[in-house]
Amino acid sequence: MRAMGLAVKVKKNRLDTTVVVLNDDGDRDVALDVSNVRVEATFEINSGVDEMANMLGDCAKNFSGRLRGLKPDVVTVRRADRPARPTNTEGPRMRLLMEGALTSSAQQLVAGTTIRNGRECGSDYGTNKADLDRVASEIKGGKFSEATAAALSGLVANR
């Protein structure tokens, strides 16, 4: 099974999306063995500083093209966690808009598209967010860690 995970980050009024595609060649009737999981592809989608609708549309088109080529079985978009102290800043709004645009683009091509926050990804994986993030970092860490965690949760949830 091929699972794609996405995670969006805000950096100085830019939106950077990391994408990881994991392939699991193991038996789908038994629990996931991470030693059977391999990273098939990683890439980034970086927004420009264009008008918001144009920026979201361009990123969604870029993503849609990559999605057609990679043909994942499932897509999991890792949604922003609720902050401990809500803010009324533009960054979180932009992130939510991008997550929505990419989710919509994925849903049109992959019926098995879900959107989950970190806690929900951990629950789908059968553990908690921190443990899932640790496992994900061992597979493909750094800036791809959250996207890897999303893809892992998709592999387990669709076994």
Rank of each mutant, 00 (worst) to 15 (best):
A157K: 08
L102F: 06
V156G: 02
V49D: 14
R79E: 12
N128C: 09
M4P: 04
N54M: 09
V74W: 01
R68I: 04
T114K: 09
T127W: 05
A84G: 15
G118C: 07
D81Y: 02
T113P: 09
G112R: 06
A53G: 05
E44G: 12
M4I: 09
Q108H: 14
K71L: 15
G126L: 04
D16K: 07
G118I: 01
V30I: 15
A53W: 03
M94L: 15
L70W: 04
D131K: 12
D29L: 15
K61V: 15
S35H: 11
L152A: 01
D25C: 10
G48R: 08
E51Y: 11
R28E: 07
E99R: 05
L15Q: 05
E146L: 08
A136N: 00
Q107A: 15
R66D: 09
D124P: 00
A147W: 01
L67Q: 05
A7W: 08
D81P: 02
M94I: 08
V8Y: 02
M4G: 05
V21C: 10
T76Y: 03
N88M: 13
G100I: 04
G26P: 09
R119T: 13
R134A: 14
R14K: 11
G142D: 11
F43P: 07
S64M: 11
L109F: 06
Q108W: 06
G5S: 11
G5P: 08
I139G: 04
F63D: 01
Q107Y: 08
R2K: 15
T17K: 02
L6D: 06
G69P: 02
A136H: 01
E99K: 03
S105N: 10
R14G: 01
M4A: 11
R85K: 13
R85G: 10
D24C: 05
G126T: 09
N36L: 04
V156C: 04
T114W: 01
V8I: 12
L102I: 10
R78I: 05
L155V: 01
L67E: 07
M4T: 04
A147P: 00
F63L: 08
G26M: 06
V156Q: 07
A151N: 03
A31I: 03
R68E: 15
G142F: 05
L70N: 09
L56V: 01
D24W: 00
E40F: 03
T114N: 07
T89H: 08
G100H: 08
I115S: 15
V135D: 10
R79P: 04
M94G: 11
A3E: 05
V20W: 01
T89P: 00
L155E: 00
K12R: 14
R66W: 10
K143F: 00
V75F: 00
F144L: 10
V19D: 08
M94K: 09
V34E: 10
K11M: 11
G126K: 10
T127H: 07
A111S: 15
V110Y: 03
V8W: 00
V20C: 14
A106E: 06
R95V: 06
A151E: 03
N117D: 15
V110K: 05
M98T: 08
L6K: 02
D124N: 14
S64D: 15
G5Q: 03
K61R: 12
V30T: 15
N117Q: 06
A130T: 13
R116H: 11
V37Y: 04
V49C: 13
A130S: 14
A101W: 00
D33E: 13
M1N: 02
